[in-house]
Design a protein around this nucleic acid. Structure first.
Lengths: 225, 225
DNA sequence: AGGCTAACGCCACACTGTGGCATTTTCGTC
DNA sequence: GACGAAAATGCCACAGTGTGGCGTTAGCCT
């Protein structure tokens, strides 16, 4: 609950991250099952950290919970934690990163034809269908964490921006400007849908909200004062 | 046992957290000239810090420059610095914050009539005219700093999001969803224009780039794969 | 069984940001 | 011009995050 201004503290190491875009662990959505005991163990602690983080931060607040509290509960050393996650924000945003990772995969596997706006929307709807029950349990608390901590919000926005850049790269189209504008617009619609979904997060209603948000895009341009 | 002191400190910080988005010093664009010597002195060190920060971070990189280097060069103690700025990122983003602060003022002073998209664009063009020469000298290096540091980018995105929220509040309109979509779209167009301006930042060409970006908004929605 | 190697834990350190308190500087007033 | 009040500053100590070094453990492979 104490949502202090401590949030600005975590900026330090985040600043120094040169290899920012590097992936530190195998993408959770890639279906490669860990075969060896070592890999299974590592994945288990990874999940335990991400899972405990959401609940623990949800109880005591992101800024008000020292990282040591999480480490103590999961019984992992600090060194091990930072081999699995890049920062305190990183572990808290696991669900968000999984979403966008899956979205990129779905976009790649989508047949690109017709209006690009429909392609982007369809891919997100497909992504929402692919996420499992466990993810839907972790995602709403994560959104509340983001809403309550400016530091987390900044990280989430930054990750979103990276995903957008990657989208532009993969959808490569002659007119870069219009493509980028379209993607920015779609992501904005996604965020608007999330905001309306956020208070109660009624399960199953997110696709409808997203559709409504996207269908308002055109008319918003003609909005009069 | 040390928990006692910690909780006290957190409680205090919690009170101060409320003015997270608040400006810590008199807005530089508000024409209130400081009359007393005390105010003039404070403003002078503020400007010195922001100015030196841009050049120093530009030379050695934002992540690679310890805050102490800046403090030593300006000959200010750490305590004084943090009374003027909330964080290392804050001082680096001074030019950006000045821009959006002025933008909000211009929007308030604008006659709202006709398409809101035109109002938003016109206000930004007016803002660009109002910024002085000193600002145009500091803004491009700031953009390069942002492009080179994910941490700065995250903070800039977050600040931008706050400004958008404030815009929605001030332009209060029955249909919040469409208004927010429009604002998100306009800011996206602004960012696109900045990206095209960024490499060389030819002076005076930014308004034209912004116009072009905005005029592409409608056609981007109809983009085909 | 035993070597190999990835993962781990522990320790020390750099850096950012905050509170407490004494000191200096400026303001308003006599 | 002097003086008390208020504000700004400097100095000190500390919490918290993230990193590198290095010895130790535990799973893997033959």
């Amino acid at each position: 609950m104490p949502q202090c201004g401590v949030s600005l503290r975590r900026a330090y190491a985040y600043r120094r991250r040169i290899r920012y875009g590097a992936v530190m662990a195998p993408s959770p959505s890639s279906p490669e099952q860990p075969v060896t005991l070592r890999e299974r163990k590592k994945l288990r602690t990874r999940r335990a950290l991400a899972d405990t983080a959401v609940t623990l931060f949800g109880e005591r607040g992101f800024d008000g919970t020292p990282l040591d509290a999480l480490l103590e509960q999961v019984e992992v050393s600090r060194r091990t934690f930072f081999r699995n996650f890049r920062s305190k924000e990183d572990v808290a945003l696991t669900a968000v990163k999984e979403l966008w990772g899956t979205y990129l995969e779905v976009v790649d596997a989508t047949e690109k034809s017709g209006p690009l706006a429909d392609v982007l929307l369809g891919a997100m709807l497909g992504t929402l269908e692919r996420m499992d029950e466990d993810w839907y349990r972790r995602f709403p608390p994560t959104l509340r964490l983001i809403a309550g901590s400016p530091a987390l919000d900044g990280h989430a926005l930054r990750h979103c921006a990276e995903t957008q850049t990657e989208l532009v790269r993969r959808l490569g189209v002659p007119d870069r400007l219009e493509l980028r504008l379209l993607i920015e617009f779609f992501v904005a619609a996604w965020r608007c849908a999330l905001d309306e979904w956020l208070p109660d997060c009624p399960p199953g209603e997110l696709p409808a909200l997203l559709r409504r948000s996207c269908s308002s895009m055109a008319s918003s341009l003609a909005l009069e004062a």
